[in-house]
Simulated scan of single mutants.
Amino acid sequence: MEAFLDYVIKGLVSRPEAVSIRSVRRGGTVVYEVRVDPADMGKVIGKNGVTINAIRSLVLAGGGKRGQHCVVEVSEAGRR
C-alpha cells in the first residue's frame, strides 16, 4: 500500500523529492502519514478535498482486501 501511495502522490506534486510516507500502527489501524512540500498541499487535497478523498477510498479498499483498516493523513513537510 505504501508503494501505491508513493506512486500516486509523487505523480501529483511538483516536488516529488519532498514527499515522505511513513506507516504507523495505532491499535488495529494502519495510518499512512504523508508529508509533502507546502506548495503541493493543494494538489494533493484537490478542490473540496476530492483528490485526497479518492486516494483515501482506494487505500481503504486495498487495505480491506488485506484485512486491514487503513487511514491516510496528509501534512506539510516539516510539520507534525
Rank of each mutant, 00 (worst) to 15 (best):
residue 50 V to I: 13
residue 45 I to W: 07
residue 80 R to T: 12
residue 77 A to F: 00
residue 38 P to D: 01
residue 40 D to L: 08
residue 66 R to H: 04
residue 57 S to R: 08
residue 49 G to V: 12
residue 74 V to Q: 05
residue 44 V to W: 02
residue 72 V to D: 02
residue 41 M to T: 09
residue 76 E to C: 11
residue 50 V to N: 13
residue 48 N to Y: 11
residue 59 V to S: 05
residue 58 L to A: 07
residue 64 G to H: 08
residue 49 G to D: 04
residue 57 S to Q: 11
residue 80 R to Q: 14
residue 76 E to Y: 07
residue 63 G to N: 10
residue 75 S to W: 08
residue 49 G to H: 10
residue 77 A to C: 00
residue 70 C to S: 12
residue 69 H to Y: 11
residue 47 K to T: 13
residue 73 E to F: 01
residue 55 I to L: 02
residue 43 K to C: 03
residue 41 M to N: 06
residue 58 L to R: 02
residue 70 C to D: 02
residue 42 G to K: 01
residue 66 R to C: 08
residue 50 V to L: 14
residue 43 K to L: 11
residue 71 V to R: 15
residue 51 T to W: 02
residue 64 G to C: 07
residue 71 V to L: 14
residue 54 A to S: 12
residue 63 G to D: 03
residue 46 G to D: 07
residue 75 S to R: 15
residue 65 K to C: 07
residue 73 E to D: 15
residue 69 H to K: 15
residue 39 A to V: 13
residue 43 K to Y: 07
residue 61 A to G: 00
residue 72 V to E: 03
residue 47 K to I: 14
residue 42 G to D: 09
residue 42 G to F: 12
residue 59 V to R: 09
residue 56 R to C: 06
residue 66 R to G: 00
residue 51 T to L: 00
residue 66 R to M: 04
residue 78 G to M: 03
residue 76 E to F: 04
residue 66 R to I: 00
residue 63 G to Q: 10
residue 39 A to Q: 02
residue 77 A to Q: 05
residue 72 V to Y: 05
residue 49 G to M: 11
residue 65 K to H: 13
residue 80 R to A: 14
residue 52 I to A: 05
residue 72 V to L: 08
residue 64 G to V: 09
residue 58 L to M: 10
residue 70 C to L: 13
residue 41 M to E: 07
residue 49 G to N: 13
residue 71 V to D: 03
residue 58 L to E: 00
residue 71 V to H: 13
residue 38 P to L: 01
residue 39 A to Y: 01
residue 45 I to G: 05
residue 80 R to M: 05
residue 38 P to M: 02
residue 51 T to K: 08
residue 58 L to N: 01
residue 40 D to R: 05
residue 66 R to S: 00
residue 44 V to S: 03
residue 56 R to L: 04
residue 70 C to I: 13
residue 49 G to R: 15
residue 77 A to H: 02
residue 43 K to N: 10
residue 58 L to Y: 01
residue 51 T to N: 06
residue 67 G to Q: 07
residue 58 L to S: 06
residue 72 V to G: 03
residue 46 G to K: 11
residue 73 E to K: 10
residue 79 R to V: 15
residue 76 E to M: 09
residue 42 G to A: 09
residue 66 R to W: 00
residue 68 Q to A: 13
residue 50 V to C: 12
residue 65 K to L: 07
residue 39 A to N: 02
residue 54 A to M: 03
residue 72 V to I: 12
residue 47 K to G: 09
residue 69 H to W: 07
residue 76 E to N: 09
residue 61 A to L: 08
residue 43 K to G: 09
residue 42 G to T: 09
residue 54 A to Y: 02
residue 74 V to G: 06
residue 50 V to R: 15
residue 52 I to F: 05
residue 77 A to I: 03
residue 63 G to L: 15
residue 67 G to L: 12
residue 77 A to W: 01
residue 68 Q to Y: 05
residue 45 I to V: 15
residue 78 G to A: 05
residue 75 S to H: 10
residue 70 C to N: 11
residue 77 A to V: 04
residue 67 G to E: 15
residue 72 V to K: 06
residue 60 L to Q: 08
residue 77 A to E: 13
residue 65 K to S: 09
residue 66 R to V: 00
residue 67 G to H: 10
residue 46 G to R: 10
residue 53 N to E: 11
residue 45 I to P: 02
residue 67 G to S: 12
residue 62 G to E: 03
residue 75 S to L: 04
residue 62 G to P: 00
residue 52 I to N: 04
residue 76 E to Q: 14
residue 67 G to Y: 11
residue 43 K to F: 04
residue 38 P to I: 04
residue 41 M to V: 15
residue 47 K to W: 14
residue 61 A to N: 00
